[in-house]
């Protein structure tokens, strides 16, 4: 039992994050959640769908639902055209999703213990889908909880 605990904390200490930039803000996603980074093309618009859904597209034979992160977080996107924005592919409940963003940055390793709780005055949309913040040297990095983000969208549709 004790051994297991040690293993856990060891693995937790150096968590890796993929950083993305959206509307000037830096966000991080745990790397084990991200399958792929790709440049989406050939979007299919889905009429009547929620505004957060940018469309569906074919990613190597699987149909992927593209989520416009700027619409979820309510920040203005730098690129308005979907085709010029990189996306991260994510698997949730056996379904494939793509998170559209402005810029995909480097992968950084951060110590779990340095993750701080979100400031209480963080706006609700953001607080709901993020687990905490890192203080990097130059700026702040908001860590997104991608499971909650997708779950929220799924529930929103069900309601």
């Amino acid at each position: 039992m004790i051994e297991e605990k040690n293993e856990n904390s060891a693995a937790g200490r150096g968590q890796q994050y993929v950083t993305i930039r959206l509307g000037g803000q830096l966000f991080g996603l745990p790397i084990d959640k991200v399958q792929d980074v790709f440049m989406p093309d050939n979007f299919t618009f889905v009429p009547l769908a929620a505004e957060e859904i940018a469309g569906v597209l074919n990613l190597r034979g699987r149909i992927l639902t593209a989520i416009d992160l700027s619409k979820v977080l309510k920040v203005p996107a730098v690129n308005e055209t979907n085709a010029e924005r990189p996306a991260l592919s994510i698997v949730y409940a056996n379904e494939l999703y793509g998170i559209l963003t402005d810029i995909v940055g480097e992968v950084i390793t951060l110590d779990d213990n340095l993750l701080e709780a979100n400031p209480v005055n963080l706006n609700e949309e953001w607080a709901k889908v993020s687990v905490g913040t890192y203080r990097l040297e130059k700026e702040l990095l908001v860590i997104l909880d991608i499971d909650v983000l997708i779950e929220t969208l799924l529930n929103k549709k069900a309601a």
Binding site: T44, V46, L48, A49, I53, L57, N58, I63
Partner: peptide, 26 residues
């Protein structure tokens, strides 16, 4: 192909498919 859970409540569509040219259509 079945639709994503996020689109299931759009009752106008029953699924989606990939066409010969690789695009997805509803």
């Amino acid at each position: 192909k079945p639709m994503s859970g996020m689109l299931k409540d759009v009752s106008m569509f029953s699924g989606n498919t990939i066409m010969g040219d690789g695009t997805v259509i509803m």
